[in-house]
Simulated assay, not measured.
Amino acid sequence: MFGPEGPTLRELAVQALSSVEHGYDLLAPKFDHTPFRTPGPVLDAVAEALAPLGPFTDGLDLCCGTGAGMRPLARLCRRSVTGVDFSAGMLDVARQRVRPTEVPRVAWVRGDARALPFADAFDLVVSFGAFGHFLPAELPRLFAGVRAALRPGGRFAFPVFAPPRPTDPGFWLLAGFDAVMRVRNALWRPPFVMYYRSLRLGSFLGELERAGFTVEPRVLPGFGRRADGSPRGRLVVARRAGAPDPAVTPRRAG
């Protein structure tokens, strides 16, 4: 799973026994050499699916990590892009790897996704692979903050992939990981919240609707379909209700 430039087993163990924030500070220099980084084909597929809904003016990458999603986000947004993450280490790496010459008008903000410091600032918010760090009870607060950060009519988008079947070894790998994390969090403080199987598509859709979004699920066709015909990859697109007022000049993000 990890190349020679990735973290050692000892480094992963130290990370797992830390808080989420400190753990990612430790992992940041080697994060892009782990399977936790969102693959390029996923980033490109999301950008391609969102392009017909644009152009967008200002975009936000929620839980941006080392900035892998900033380049495709910049292709969609005409004015500015902002990355927010609560790990200072991840943001330090992002600043080094996403240069202004590649992504102009970029801003980096250290902050908690559950308490975003923005209001009516963006037309598009995206997120890649971060929801395992939030407990189901935290979704209402998280989605309410995203809705507040969007302008009326703005969109919140993130990919969701079908979980493996019980006949797939990957199912038991993820189930085992979640079980180990629950035992670890029951015995060790501070907790490290990272559960691969705690959130389901239905939970996302219901919470988004309760938060005041109109939800538009879309298929990501490049990832094929399962044996039962259901898509392997979907893009959840949630639109903040209300048309933007053309008389109001949008605020610059960041």
Rank of each mutant, 00 (worst) to 15 (best):
residue 230 S to H: 05
residue 123 D to Y: 01
residue 105 R to I: 01
residue 172 W to I: 09
residue 161 F to D: 10
residue 210 R to E: 02
residue 212 G to Q: 01
residue 190 P to R: 04
residue 189 R to L: 10
residue 214 T to E: 15
residue 17 L to Q: 14
residue 12 L to Y: 07
residue 40 G to Y: 01
residue 57 T to R: 15
residue 189 R to N: 01
residue 73 L to C: 02
residue 198 S to M: 03
residue 131 F to H: 12
residue 104 P to N: 06
residue 204 F to W: 10
residue 162 A to I: 00
residue 167 T to R: 12
residue 148 A to Q: 07
residue 56 F to N: 06
residue 1 M to K: 10
residue 122 F to W: 00
residue 163 P to N: 03
residue 55 P to G: 09
residue 226 R to V: 03
residue 3 G to C: 05
residue 57 T to P: 00
residue 92 D to R: 15
residue 44 D to S: 14
residue 233 G to L: 12
residue 231 P to M: 02
residue 20 V to Y: 00
residue 150 L to D: 02
residue 199 L to C: 05
residue 154 G to Y: 07
residue 181 M to F: 09
residue 89 G to P: 02
residue 95 R to F: 10
residue 83 G to V: 11
residue 108 W to H: 12
residue 216 E to W: 07
residue 184 R to W: 12
residue 101 T to L: 12
residue 234 R to T: 05
residue 213 F to Q: 00
residue 65 G to D: 06
residue 170 G to S: 11
residue 98 V to F: 00
residue 38 T to M: 09
residue 134 F to S: 05
residue 134 F to R: 09
residue 88 A to D: 13
residue 50 L to D: 12
residue 212 G to M: 03
residue 210 R to P: 01
residue 89 G to K: 05
residue 121 A to F: 06
residue 141 R to I: 03
residue 114 R to E: 14
residue 224 G to M: 08
residue 232 R to S: 08
residue 159 P to F: 12
residue 205 L to M: 09
residue 95 R to K: 15
residue 84 V to Y: 01
residue 35 P to S: 06
residue 14 V to Q: 14
residue 150 L to H: 03
residue 133 H to C: 09
residue 56 F to C: 06
residue 101 T to Q: 15
residue 232 R to I: 08
residue 174 L to Q: 08
residue 197 R to D: 04
residue 203 S to F: 03
residue 180 V to P: 00
residue 38 T to F: 08
residue 221 P to V: 04
residue 2 F to D: 12
residue 249 T to M: 08
residue 201 L to M: 07
residue 51 A to K: 14
residue 195 Y to F: 15
residue 104 P to Y: 01
residue 98 V to A: 01
residue 194 M to C: 14
residue 150 L to E: 02
residue 15 Q to S: 08
residue 58 D to G: 04
residue 189 R to C: 01
residue 23 G to T: 04
residue 139 L to Q: 03
residue 15 Q to V: 15
residue 145 G to P: 08
residue 219 V to E: 15
residue 66 T to D: 11
residue 216 E to F: 08
residue 118 F to C: 01
residue 237 V to D: 07
residue 204 F to V: 10
residue 42 V to W: 03
residue 43 L to K: 04
residue 20 V to A: 13
residue 107 A to T: 13
residue 5 E to L: 15
residue 101 T to M: 09
residue 120 D to H: 13
residue 6 G to N: 12
residue 237 V to E: 07
residue 124 L to Y: 02
residue 10 R to I: 08
residue 223 F to S: 12
residue 105 R to K: 09
residue 226 R to F: 04
residue 155 R to T: 07
residue 146 V to P: 09
residue 180 V to I: 11
residue 76 L to A: 05
residue 100 P to L: 11
residue 241 A to L: 13
residue 242 G to D: 10
residue 71 R to H: 11
residue 135 L to T: 14
residue 141 R to K: 11
residue 40 G to S: 13
residue 21 E to P: 00
residue 234 R to M: 14
residue 223 F to H: 11
residue 170 G to T: 02
residue 103 V to A: 05
residue 144 A to H: 09
residue 191 P to E: 07
residue 89 G to E: 05
residue 23 G to W: 03
residue 51 A to D: 13
residue 188 W to C: 13
residue 97 R to Y: 02
residue 251 R to H: 06
residue 181 M to R: 07
residue 136 P to M: 08
residue 83 G to L: 12
residue 180 V to W: 14
residue 36 F to M: 13
residue 78 R to P: 07
residue 63 C to E: 07
